[in-house]
Design a protein around this nucleic acid. Structure first.
Lengths: 344, 344
DNA sequence: TGCGCCGATGTGAACGTACACATCGCGACG
DNA sequence: CGTCGCGATGTGTACGTTCACATCGGCGCA
């Protein structure tokens, strides 16, 4: 880790060169420089070259603040996120950034630490003051919707990882379907006593997966039992597992994400139980590590990158005034590995 | 996923209220409004209240671009990062954001996709045009240093996760030391034939861990062998493991990160080998999942959050003109779990 | 009572850029 | 041969805010 100030011994603060400085050096008007910067046609090649040389010589960089001020176009997409350490959001943000960059947009990311209304509002407030042109919400908490409505976000926005709950246009990963696929898989293997470890209550995704689980069970006329509410961490899965396995009145578990599934498998090992011989386990997300768990985890793959790309495409389309966009849900995919087996 | 435009049927584009609109409504001058916004003292309580009411009534939000333009203070810290999907960088960014937020700063994050000079330069260029006040580099690639020097980044900057290679002030996680601790641990357990799976060649961290490994081995007069260069992924660890275990002319492996270690353990299982009875494995990073691997992984913990916090503290200190700052390396910590055992 | 100071507020300018419009020279066309 | 059109360039102004300075009233003090 290194730190360094650029001008150690420079008394007067050197003003960064501006468009007029460039103009002076190039011997043209500032407007001509502006034209060069904005790729305007109708510039003599020789003039163009002179301006370019001047820019290089001075190390000139256009001032985004000034540009944003005058155009009132920030070329920025706001992202309101939570839990960016997790694989899903992180992957989605990556995809969003790449798509945005390709379209000449940048990202302004704000992480909300807690999920209370005030912190959502302040995050949103901050983003708005950046005069973002569009908004992606990656914080799949229920209260976010209220906040968005209250605050009158005056820009197109997209909420990711939700469940198509909201009115108007909808596009989302069909997590209910994913959960049903996972549960169905267990039922098909002959399991009748199935547990569910879910995510935190205020996460829309957790809710959706729980719904899918319960619906599939009831469609199969199987006994449903109250899901355990977890916190997405491997540790929670571990401790919940230790607790649940003391009774062992179930033969399969559908776990709300892969990390908790990992912890649960750890608990199984410690309890002397074999996965999948004694207990079958299905996770959710298909993080890259899941293929290498012991045993490799059967799970539901979500295409986070695809979702990120589509979000940006949607938003950009709307900014261009196109209204007809595909809003089909992204279909999750069941990846069967070795953590699930036929009930013996 | 939901999308919605704010004003569906509003022909003329409504200009957002500005400071003068607020002033008019409150019946004061715009300067007084500005004072309210900047918490200036010496404002009559009644005036203050009137202005506040006007702000609420109009839903006024200060325009950051205008503010940045005139103050030439963007209140923004730039972050140049790579691989934000990984746990380490993600955690660090989180900590950086929190610290920055507490100090009234925001983050402008740019991810570089590839590590070639052009893409580093363009990322840096972009950040500079945002008139960032300070820079954190989380992209621990060798070429970044050249780029920073070439581009004359006119602001204080900090490079994270490096190795104290650079001149001037230095602060970093002592990864050489971490690697030595890991290697030492294996040596202490009686292992003499130790492999190393490293990260990509152009990552400074990978290089540092490799150095630590080699030095510790040579200090112990043990045979060194060429490390395998990996890509940080679990899959790589798995395939490398399958390959290496065909010969099995070693009894222990120091793996460059926890994900690759996970893959390697998978390969051990498939090759019918027990960890730690047949092969001892040490990872690096201590991601939250490592405690639940099969078996729980012995690894070197890095305090990513601490590093992020210190980076911001350092930068903010420098912005305030303080020059004396602690630049001690952050010490990593060996976490001994069950993937390592005495050579039998 | 007059002077100076201070608290509270207002006025002018500047930040760096893009847009609208003005200007200028030149070739083509009737 | 005048003028029209157009390519190439220049001039004025606005964007929304903060800073430096100006103003104004009242209060304490000699």
């Amino acid at each position: 880790m290194t730190t360094e100030t650029a001008r150690p011994a420079e008394p007067e603060r050197v003003r960064a060169p501006n468009i007029r400085d460039v103009a002076r050096v190039a011997g043209v008007s500032y407007q001509t420089v502006s034209r060069v910067l904005n790729d305007s046609p109708n510039i003599r090649t020789e003039t163009l070259q002179r301006v370019r040389d001047a820019i290089d010589e001075l190390g000139y960089r256009p001032n985004q603040a000034a540009r944003a001020l005058v155009t009132s176009r920030s070329r920025t997409i706001g992202v309101l996120s939570a839990q960016t350490v997790h694989y899903g959001p992180a992957t989605a943000i990556n995809a969003i950034e790449n798509s945005a960059r390709d379209a000449g947009y940048r990202l302004s990311i704000t992480n909300i630490s807690s999920s209370d209304y005030a912190s959502i509002k302040s995050g949103l407030d901050y983003l708005m003051s950046q005069s973002i042109e569009a908004l992606v919400v990656l914080a799949p908490q229920v209260r976010v919707f209220e906040a968005i409505n209250d605050l009158q976000v005056g820009v197109p926005f997209v909420t990711l990882e939700a469940t198509g709950l909201t009115t108007s246009h909808s596009l989302w990963v069909d997590q209910v379907m994913g959960a049903r696929m996972a549960t169905r898989h267990l039922i098909d293997l002959g399991h009748t006593e199935i547990m569910h470890i879910s995510g935190p209550q205020d996460w829309i995704e957790a809710e959706a997966r729980m719904q899918g689980f319960l619906r599939e069970l009831s469609d199969a006329d199987l006994r449903t039992r109250a899901p355990i509410l977890g916190d997405w961490t491997a540790s929670f899965g571990y401790y919940a597992g230790l607790e649940l396995l003391r009774y062992r009145d179930f033969s399969a578990v559908f776990v709300g994400n892969d990390q908790m599934a990992l912890g649960f498998m750890h608990a199984c090992r410690e309890s002397g139980l074999s996965v999948p011989d004694d207990i079958s386990i299905v996770g959710f997300d298909d993080i890259p590590e899941s293929a290498h768990f012991a045993p490799p985890l059967t799970t539901v793959r979500q295409n986070f990158a695809e979702i990120g790309r589509r979000a940006v495409a949607l938003l950009l389309g709307e900014l261009r005034g196109e209204t007809e966009m595909s809003h089909d849900p992204v279909q999750p995919e069941l990846i069967v590995r070795q953590s699930t087996g036929r009930l013996t």
